[in-house]
Computed example of a mutant assay.
Amino acid sequence: MSDVYLTHLISDCDGVLVDSESVTLFSLLKQLRPYVPADTPLVALIQPRQGQNFETLLTGVFLELGLAPPAPDVCAAIRQGVETDCDRLQRAVPGVLRALAAINMPKAVASNNTGARVRSALERTGMAPLFGGRVFTPDLVGHAKPHPGLYLAAAAAFGVPPGQCLVLEDSVTGVTAAVAAGMTVLGFIGGGHVAAGQEARLKTAGALLVFNDMARLPALVAAVMDTAAV
């Protein structure tokens, strides 16, 4: 038997709990268009960066286009537009509330979004009670993914070694952070924003398994826990 057991669950928010990444992509296409050349292939620039924190994503897109990094007021205006669209359009990932309720593990959220935005999304979708206020974000922790700090902070708050934590992630950025923290990761590709080839990218980043239907999650978690205990 192994000395390490998976006892706690940590989940990303956007794209795993809340199907907001597809809304964010739609909104970013609209918000960025006035700032870039008309023929810019924005989808191809944005999709690989989803999961990064907002300013990093915008700066990366601008620099790849040979433009100066966006000024703070531009970032703020784009963020406001995206947040307005997310408030209006985002929904819980189908089946996620039932799946999480069936998993008897303490749970936390680690997200590159702001604490206020994550808590608002959890409240709107009815998932807040499942996490008991355990939300870890860069504005609270001081680190954003792919740095492992968010995941390490969640494990520390639980009072368990990082190796006892199982993580749900949908982005290479997030998988990279969780793996660097020494955690086991399940990759989710059932959101509306997933680009072709994402399963392979998540596995390359270190995801143990990749799945596309939240109805499968309780059984997958049970199987991974059984494997970890051998």
Rank of each mutant, 00 (worst) to 15 (best):
residue 222 A to V: 00
residue 132 G to A: 12
residue 146 P to T: 06
residue 133 G to T: 10
residue 209 L to Q: 15
residue 206 G to F: 01
residue 97 L to A: 15
residue 99 A to Y: 13
residue 84 T to P: 00
residue 152 L to E: 01
residue 125 T to C: 05
residue 90 Q to G: 00
residue 161 P to A: 15
residue 144 A to E: 07
residue 194 V to H: 10
residue 81 G to T: 07
residue 220 L to F: 02
residue 183 M to T: 08
residue 158 F to W: 11
residue 201 R to M: 07
residue 179 V to L: 06
residue 169 E to D: 03
residue 98 R to S: 14
residue 151 Y to H: 10
residue 98 R to W: 00
residue 203 K to W: 02
residue 194 V to Q: 15
residue 90 Q to H: 01
residue 113 N to Q: 15
residue 200 A to W: 01
residue 115 G to E: 15
residue 191 G to A: 14
residue 220 L to M: 12
residue 216 R to S: 13
residue 180 A to N: 09
residue 219 A to F: 00
residue 143 H to N: 08
residue 117 R to W: 05
residue 219 A to G: 13
residue 198 Q to N: 11
residue 142 G to C: 11
residue 93 V to R: 10
residue 181 A to P: 04
residue 198 Q to P: 00
residue 112 N to D: 15
residue 170 D to E: 06
residue 125 T to L: 04
residue 205 A to S: 10
residue 117 R to Y: 06
residue 156 A to E: 14
residue 158 F to N: 08
residue 194 V to F: 08
residue 131 F to Y: 06
residue 149 G to I: 04
residue 123 E to V: 11
residue 89 L to C: 04
residue 154 A to D: 07
residue 89 L to S: 00
residue 82 V to Y: 02
residue 111 S to V: 09
residue 98 R to F: 02
residue 170 D to W: 00
residue 164 Q to H: 10
residue 135 V to E: 11
residue 95 G to P: 04
residue 174 G to H: 03
residue 200 A to L: 10
residue 126 G to L: 02
residue 130 L to H: 07
residue 201 R to P: 04
residue 132 G to M: 07
residue 130 L to A: 12
residue 113 N to K: 12
residue 194 V to S: 11
residue 95 G to C: 08
residue 121 A to D: 14
residue 160 V to M: 10
residue 171 S to A: 14
residue 126 G to T: 05
residue 132 G to H: 05
residue 91 R to H: 12
residue 221 V to R: 02
residue 91 R to E: 14
residue 215 A to P: 01
residue 159 G to S: 04
residue 207 A to K: 03
residue 213 D to K: 09
residue 174 G to N: 03
residue 150 L to A: 03
residue 165 C to Q: 05
residue 98 R to K: 13
residue 220 L to Q: 03
residue 131 F to W: 09
residue 157 A to W: 04
residue 153 A to K: 08
residue 150 L to W: 04
residue 172 V to W: 01
residue 222 A to G: 01
residue 192 G to H: 03
